[in-house]
Each structure stands twice: as structure tokens, then as C-alpha cells.
Design a protein around this nucleic acid. Structure first.
Lengths: 353, 353
DNA sequence: CTGAAAGCGCTAACAC
DNA sequence: GTGTTAGCGCTTTCAG
């Protein structure tokens, strides 16, 4: 590694440092540049002797192939774009790690696009992608480039493999890795109902969000399975953030008749909501039960610890990366993968009063 | 955007779709490829008429310059590598966002390297960098490539601008963006002492970590300023994670004589520690005060809410990116930037029982 | 202000 | 199994 960025074979002194090129290696190994290239890409097609000389020359020169040249010629970048709505959101970071490690093992790099709700950024990354800077993309944002919301407008045609992660993209025919949001939400709802809760508040995700729609459907499924009526007045809008959980909590505190349980569709909201309830002198779960969704790191150490739905975040990331790599390398890949969730029972939920 | 990835000017039908190249634009605008290139890079050196024709042809063809070709020729990638020890750590995500947005505005892309404690990954990214895939790098991991710990071995020579963020790199002569960890830790310690605490436990970061060293020095400074002796028995080792906070809490619970206050050098540890204390029936802050460091999102909604040191994370990221961009574009940049921290007083700290 | 032409460093076709 | 050669698409001299 000491020779990085240094031309090989010559002066160790202060001579102008120049990166070794394939020519330098070829000369040193006494073969053609084509053989050097082959020794690296398809070693089995090169004689053992030549290969050994090439390898030695590479070690001596510290040669590292120039990726721009390689990309220009082979039309492959070995880069994958990961598009996500919010990099600062805890929920994504572990998924990202799962993606990164899988890509890394397969020799791919990861470029991150934090959309941050900006259409300008989206256009930029669409152009970026179209320009061939990446071989494929993983979309965590629930829609294709240039398609602000489902149905509206034609998605730009991007000629590279795409994979949707977490948020399915309804109109697009691309592989999709997800959990069964509807079933999980139903399960949590039934858990609450099974404990005896009859008035259950639902704190939603952002309107029009596909996850939200699934979870909301699941909430209603659960209610129905438990023989409970659905009361729209019991729904509080949220957007998965801590702040919206705090706001939902404030609304609850202000009311005279309160639900006995609150199902928040993200742990962030649940933690923010519990905080507000506690500050107002209410007890959780004695006065009011609170459930979350996601099982982020902080759910287990919240006070009280949070009953929630566990999502295998790292595995979701790994699965998405694996599917994309298969696609990139021309292997068949499943159209859909559903990973199992788990109901995690902790201390924020108890039978009513 | 509808034309992305489609050759321009010809059939709208099912003809083989091919991305437009500079040649296509040149032909359509009736100029040479050189003029197209100049119209994009140095518009002032092209006649208004020619420029207009070129722009029109670009719009018509949906031309996007091929970055690989551009990089190969100009030796610039417009990509920046961000090296960090742990992508899943909450502390980094907001910093990352600050970096990303600043880079984006300047037209640079971001490639993330999650080291994850793996020397193999480190070697890979060193090669990656040496291969010229990025124009510069921001290092959040406290050491240079190939330099496992300060002092040991020669850092690989990477011929590109580097910026250290948060963790200074002692032996390296590169710009450094940070907070005054020592002063901040001293301030918190004095705050605790000022409230009347005499036995203050310190939960450390990882051994050999430069942040840890600074904060530890600050802790001792604060003790000294308050006229308190330093007792090594009051130091508990940690590593900034929730788990290590939980472990530290268990150690504390098991003791017969306990400190009246605990200064955790990360919010994650503080939250994990509070959780353990609370579960054991101890009250925070009545029985024991707990302070954190960083002011992550969850600090404000922890129960009790956490007294901590606020770090301007987004601004740190922005500052690092700004310095790097200045360097990349040949402008002078400061050798060091120190951003202000703030003592945030919430409910986890009170005078001793 | 503009065009012709020479590569940037590599891989893939094609010959042998 | 190996070498020769022709580009990948762009920027950048160098002339004019």
C-alpha cells in the first residue's frame, strides 16, 4: 500500500509521481496490455507463467486500473445508486448498512441520493442515472424518478435495473423487497384488542404513503377481526417523525375522553408521544398504552420500553442489494421478497385501567 | 426528462434506444464537438448564436455528457468519498446530510464508505481512492488509510485533498473541522459540580479514541476547576453505544455506594444507562443525575429528557464539505474550524438528593 | 471565436 | 494462449 499512486520501477526519490498504467505493467511483465487485462478479468485464459509475471509487475508498480477508462470501454460502473427520502432518519441507517455490506462484497460501490423532498434533487439524480454513472438503483422512496406520485405522469425511462425497497412502487414492474405491513399492523391491533382495549387511537404516517395505506388497512383488519368498530375520530395524522408524535400526544392530552391505547405507526412517533403523555402527568401503560412500529434501537431503551413490530432492517437491505446484483449480473431474481416481522412485547402496553 | 436515455431527433417509435453523444448534438447544432464542449464548460467563449443552437440541440436530444469519458479526459470525477466508522450510528446521519447537501449544491456526488471496523474494507477504499474514483475525501474515522492507529506505520500517500471531521488526525497535516470537545466536557463537569455533585462517574468512549481523550481531559479540567479530586475508580469504560451504556448502568446498580451523577460521553450511552437505572428502581434525577453528550434527536424525548452538550451536526457536515470543495477548486481553506457547542439543560440532572 | 485532431487508459474483436 | 488494433465519448491543445 505504500506505493499507492506512485509509478513503479523507477526512482524512489522525488521524481514526479505518476500512477502506473496498464502499459507500465505490460512492459515490466513483458506481455501485451491485453494480457494484463485478461490476467485480471479472466485469469483462466492466461498461461500460469504470464499470469505470475503480470501479478508480480502489478505488485511492483502498485498498479490500480483506472475506473473511468474501464467504465468508458465496458459500459459498467460497478456503482449502485441508493435513493432515499431522508438520510437522517434512524430507520434507514441500518438498512443502508445492509445494502452497503452486500454491495461491497460483490465489488460494487454505493452512491447515496438523499432526496430531502426536493424535486430538483430528484431531477439531478435522474440525469445522473441516465448519464450512466451507475449500473442500477435501489429505491426507498416509493416512486420512480420524475413520477411525483403514483399514477401521475410517465416515469422517465431509465434503462438500468431497479429494485424497490420497503415502499412498493405500484405502477412499476420492478422487484420489490418488503415486509407485510398490513398483516403486521393487524397483528398489533389485535394484540391491543386482545388485552381488552376498545378505544384504540391510530397515529398515521404521511398521507398517500404506500406504507401508511397498508398499515391503515391492517389496522382496520385488526379492528374487524376483534369485532371492534372503526371510528375515524380515533385517527390522528402523523408523518413518522418524533415531532409529529409529540404533536399527536399534545392533542391527546387536551382531550377529555381519551383512548386507552395508541398505535403509532413508527417508533419515533411512539417515543415522542409517550414523552408528551408522561410530561402531562399521564402514566404509560397504566393510564394509556402506547405501541410502535419498526423496532429501532431506541425502542428497547425507551421509558417505558416500547412494544412494537420488529422489522429486520439489515436483512431488508441485504435482500434488496442481492436482488439488484443478480439482476446486474444477468441472473434471474424474484419479483417480490417478503421478510417476516415480529411482535415485540415490552412494557408500554398493558390491559386498560 | 421524458427523453432520458433516448437518441434525439429521430423516430419516436421502437427504434433501438441509444443515448445521445456529443457528436449527435454537434451535428444537430451544426458545430464541432469542441464547440459543444465549450458551450457547456465555458459559455463565455462561444458566440451567443452558436451557444443557442447547441443548447437547443441538447434539449432536443436529451444529451447528458458521459461522465466516464469526461473523467478519463479531465481527470476529475466530481465525486467525494466520505469515510465513516459506522453508518448505523445516529450521530453520523445528520452530519452526512449536511455533507450531502453542500456537496450537491456544488455539483459533487457522495460515495460512502462504512468501515465497520474492517481493515479489508479500508484497504479496498484506499485502492478505490488511489484509482482516482474520487476527487477528495472527508474522514470521520480518526485516521488515514492504512494507518490503523496514530503513530503506527506510514499512511498511504493519497494524492487528493482530505478533510478530517470530528475526529482530528494527529499526525496528518490536513484541515480539521471539530468542536472543542475538551472545553465542552469541562463545562458539563462544572455544571454537575456546580449543582453540588461531588462523586461524578465518567462513562468513557472507546480507548485510544481521540474524542475520548479530549473529553476525558475536559472532565479532569472540570473537576479541577471545581476543586474536586479525580478518582480513577469513578471511570467506567464505554464505547458510545447504547449497549455499553446499559452495561455501565448494570455495574452502577450492583454497587453499594453510588455516585450522585453520571457523565456519559454520548447520548446513546446516557439513554441506555438511564434505562437500566430506572428498571432497577432508581430514580433519575432524584437518586442519580445523568448527563449526555451530542444532543441527538432522542435526547429531548428521553424520559427524563436528557441534559447534554449540543453539537451542531448538520453544520459540521456542511463546514467539512465546504472546506473540501474550496480545496478541490484551488481556493485557500482554513486549517481548522471549531464550531460552538451548547450546554442543554433538561430534566435528567438535578442537585444531589 | 471555431474546427481538426490527439489522446485520457482501458477492453474487446480479431487475427495468429 | 497471445498480440495488434480499434475505439468507448469526451476535453483540450493547436491552428487558423
Amino acid at each position: 500500500m505504500d506505493d499507492l499512486g506512485q509509478a513503479g520501477g523507477t526512482e524512489p526519490g522525488d521524481a514526479p509521481v505518476r500512477a502506473a498504467r496498464i502499459q507500465d505493467v505490460a512492459r515490466l511483465a513483458d506481455v501485451s496490455t491485453a494480457t494484463v487485462s485478461r490476467a485480471l478479468a479472466t485469469p483462466e485464459r492466461v498461461s500460469p507463467e504470464a499470469r505470475a509475471r503480470v501479478l508480480e509487475a502489478i505488485a511492483k508498480t502498485g498498479y490500480v486500473p483506472n475506473p473511468a477508462a474501464r467504465t468508458l470501454r465496458s459500459q459498467k460502473t460497478y456503482m449502485v445508486l441508493v435513493v432515499l427520502p431522508d438520510l437522517a432518519n434512524t430507520f434507514f441507517s441500518k438498512i443502508l448498512r445492509g445494502i452497503e455490506e452486500t454491495l461491497f462484497e460483490a465489488g460494487y460501490g454505493m452512491i447515496i441520493s438523499d432526496l430531502d423532498g426536493s424535486p430538483e434533487k430528484e431531477a439531478h439524480f435522474a440525469a445522473f442515472t441516465a448519464a450512466g454513472r451507475v449500473d442500477g438503483a435501489i429505491l426507498l422512496n416509493g416512486h420512480l424518478f420524475g413520477q411525483s406520485r403514483e399514477g401521475e405522469g410517465q416515469p422517465a425511462r431509465i434503462g438500468i435495473p431497479l429494485v424497490a425497497l420497503c415502499e412498493a412502487i405500484p405502477s412499476a414492474d420492478i422487484p420489490h423487497i418488503e415486509i407485510d405491513n398490513r398483516a403486521a399492523a393487524s397483528r398489533m391491533t389485535q394484540h391491543l384488542a386482545g388485552l381488552g382495549h376498545r378505544r384504540i387511537t391510530y397515529v398515521s404516517g404521511p398521507a398517500n404513503n404506500i406504507l401508511e395505506r397498508e398499515r391503515f388497512l391492517g389496522f382496520k383488519d385488526g379492528l374487524e377481526a376483534a369485532g371492534l368498530p372503526f371510528d375515524p375520530a380515533l385517527v390522528i395524522p402523523g408523518d413518522y417523525t418524533i415531532e409529529s408524535g409529540v404533536a399527536a400526544g399534545q392533542g391527546l392530552v387536551a382531550r377529555t375522553t381519551r383512548p386507552t391505547a395508541v398505535f403509532c405507526t413508527s417508533d419515533e412517533m411512539a417515543i415522542g408521544l409517550m414523552r408528551t403523555l408522561l410530561s402531562a402527568g399521564l402514566r404509560v401503560p397504566e393510564d394509556i398504552s402506547v405501541a410502535g412500529f419498526d423496532d429501532i434501537e431506541f425502542a428497547a431503551v425507551a421509558e417505558p420500553s416500547l412494544t412494537t413490530i420488529h422489522q429486520p432492517r439489515r436483512e431488508l437491505g441485504q435482500a434488496a442489494a442481492t436482488v439488484l446484483i443478480d439482476l446486474l449480473q444477468g441472473r434471474p431474481a424474484p419479483k417480490q421478497i417478503r421478510l417476516e416481522t415480529e411482535l415485540v412485547i415490552r412494557n408500554s402496553v398493558a390491559p386498560p385501567g
